[in-house]
Structure formats: C-alpha cells, structure tokens
C-alpha cells in the first residue's frame, strides 16, 4: 500500500503524531495534584511521554534517511493540527474560532518561512 518515499513519509508523520500524543500525556499528568514536586516528574505517564519522544526522534531520524528535509515544512507543522485535535478529543479543551484562525495563520507563516527566498 505504502511504498518507497510514501512509506518513510508515513513513518515521519507517525513520529509527529506519537509525539503529539506524548504532549497530551504530559498535560494529563500536569492536571493531577501530586504530593511532592518530584512526583510530578517521576511517574509512569511522564516517563512514558519522554519514552515516546525518544522513539519519535529515532523514527524521524530513520525517515529522514530517505525523505528530503525539504518535506519538513509540510510534516513538522502537522503537530499544530494533531495536538489541538487530540487536546479537544481527550482533554475536552475547547478551541475558539479565534485560536483555530491563529493556528492556520501560523501554519501559513511556517510555509512562507520555509519555502521561497
């Protein structure tokens, strides 16, 4: 189904997606009350989130062996879509129209920043 470039592009996109999940895991833990400051960091959720970041770095590294870095402005900003969507679905955060507009403007800005010149 996915072959060649598409296969590695998909790996890169999955790596961005799982790191977005990890961001949500950090927020889930941040919402909890802990007895000590240390427990805010040393718990399975935060450890799991950083484990996912670690895996994500290697997935991106592997994908970039085959996918040109010029795809970065397309793939990396996906996190600005994934995180709010997952935030709304799992954390029940509400996205105002204004915030959605702001994010769309930012994604356009990232595209202008990365292309052209």
């Amino acid at each position: 189904m996915f072959t060649g470039l598409w296969k590695y592009l998909l790996i890169w996109i999955i790596s961005v997606f799982i790191s977005s999940i990890a961001q949500v895991m950090l927020k889930v833990e941040a919402n909890k009350t802990h007895k000590t400051r240390l427990q805010e960091y040393l718990n399975p959720m935060v450890a799991g989130a950083y484990g996912i970041f670690f895996v994500s770095v290697f997935m991106t590294y592997y994908a970039l062996k085959y996918v040109p870095l010029t795809y970065s402005p397309i793939v990396e900003p996906l996190s600005y879509i994934f995180v709010p969507v997952i935030g709304v679905l799992l954390l029940h955060e509400k996205l105002s129209k204004r915030r959605i507009l702001g994010m769309l403007i930012m994604i356009a800005g990232i595209a202008v920043f990365s292309f052209g010149g």
């Binding site: 702001g102 930012m106 800005g109 990232i110 202008v112 920043f113």
Partner: peptide, 12 residues
C-alpha cells in the same frame, strides 16, 4: 514568515 507566525500567535 516570521511576521505571519507572530500575527498568528497574537490572534491565537
């Protein structure tokens, strides 16, 4: 791009 990103952050 930086100006557009800043504008997006300010709006968001």
């Amino acid at each position: 791009g930086s100006i557009i990103i800043l504008a997006g952050i300010m709006v968001g």
